[in-house]
Amino acid sequence: MMAVGISGYGIYIPRFRIKREEYAKAWGSFSAAGVTEKSVFGFDEDALTAAAKVTRRALESVPMEADMVTRFALATTSAPYLEKLLSGTVLVSVGIPNSAFTSDHTSSTRAGTEAMLAAFEHVMATQSGKAVVAAADAPKASMWDAVEHAFGAGAAAFVISSDNLIAELEGHFSYASEHFGERFKPKDDPLVRDLNVKKFAEGSVVRNTTSAGSALLKKLGRKPEDYQHVVIQQPDARVPVTVASRLKFTDAQLASSLVSKTLGDLGAASVPVALASALDAAKAGDRIMVISYGSGAGSDALSFKVVTDKKATVRVQADTERREYIDYVKYLKIKGAIQ
């Protein structure tokens, strides 16, 4: 079978940061475990502007002209419209042909890997196909809700094809189940709710992620120690540690991708940005296990083998270090939380 994988990638972390101390001053506490600061979009940014930026960066990293793209998949849980094609904005801005098939993946934080798998299916079916996946997110909740504390902002895009591979897809396995009460938006409200039943929610996270992850290990005949990097959904900086240890992965395997400590919860872009961070650190021959999670609930597990030492021009770490701190009042203003 023909090898397919990641041929290029691009990331973007917005410049603004807010520290956990700002929340502690405003509310008396900060509820995002292990997160010390998080990234914030500017007033004039949203999932689509960030998706356009990372799509362009990913194409430049190959390099590939936008007019080669035959499939474009967009992932976000913070769409600027509840109804309207979102991918069209990015497609036109970047110069992807109008004839490319596009899809918008928006209903859970699993959307990032959902879009990646859609892209892989395209290039597996059409050998000359070139797909781009862009995941960009800045989840939004009421400022009164503790679930809001973790929400950061960021984006990553991948060029998926069968040429010039950086990392080859070795296999994937998905798992879906029925859970509720954890991270949802009721039909008439664009803000994320969470009933905050922690143990119940953790049960869903652990069941879905470990089911997908262990099934993929079994399918590939692998053990956790065969991997140098493991990338896990990061609603905060503790959940990925819990899931990793359940699957017998170590903190060392998690280290290259633990972006939530300084960026917060990137929603549908969490796993994509974390995967880019692992790719930045990986050497040819390294293996990367990727496990996403979306409440409701489901997980996708993907296994990659890194085949070159080629990297994207803009590293996750470089964009993370470019920052300007804001206070909580400015945060409320640029989030549009003061009406």
């Binding site: 004039d44 940014e45 689509l48 502007t49 356009a52 930026k53 600027p80 904005t89 801005s93």
Partner: peptide
């Protein structure tokens, strides 16, 4: 240049370059 939100009118986001 890159794509940004320029302003919003009639609840339609007007995107454009900055």
């Amino acid at each position: 240049t890159e794509l940004r939100k320029i302003y919003t009118e009639e609840e339609v986001i007007r995107y454009g370059f900055k």
